[in-house]
Nucleic acid binder design. Structure first.
Length: 114
DNA sequence: CATCTGACGACCG
DNA sequence: GCGGTCGCCAGAT
């Protein structure tokens, strides 16, 4: 499977909202879990309007090291996402897509707790 | 074909 | 909360 699905999902993240790598992996049922999402993001083609900065680590932490971390924080803040240090307030900005259709297939949720 | 390379996250002490 | 270990897999060379 290509990482195209990841990019398409990321493109759907609305302004002011964020998704975690693990979240992306779960929504798309990626085989390798969160790491696969991470690798996909690392290979994000620039210049395609993909809002890469809206994908962050578990618990809202910005995991990118180096100058890009500052850019990511800046971009998020400019969209109204509140950040303390390098941590996003997930309670407030985590994106919860209503439908997972067209993301991969029509399999019913594997585990439906309760 | 063999190896290296990672934007992760769960788990444990 | 913090640091180490481990599983995981598509691409690039």
């Amino acid at each position: 499977m290509s990482w195209d699905a990841v990019y398409r999902l990321v493109q759907r993240i609305p302004r002011g909202k964020v998704l975690t790598y693990g979240g992306v992996a779960r929504l798309l049922r990626l085989p390798g879990g969160a790491r696969t999402a991470g690798r996909a993001m690392a290979a994000t083609p620039s210049g395609k309007g993909i809002p890469w900065h809206r994908v962050i680590g578990d618990r809202g932490k910005i995991l990118i090291r180096g100058p890009h971390a500052l850019l990511q924080r800046k971009l998020l803040e400019s969209e109204g996402v509140s950040i303390v240090e390098f941590r996003v307030n997930l309670k407030r900005h985590l994106w919860r897509p209503r439908k997972t259709t067209a993301l991969k297939d029509k399999r019913p949720r594997k585990r439906t707790p309760k």
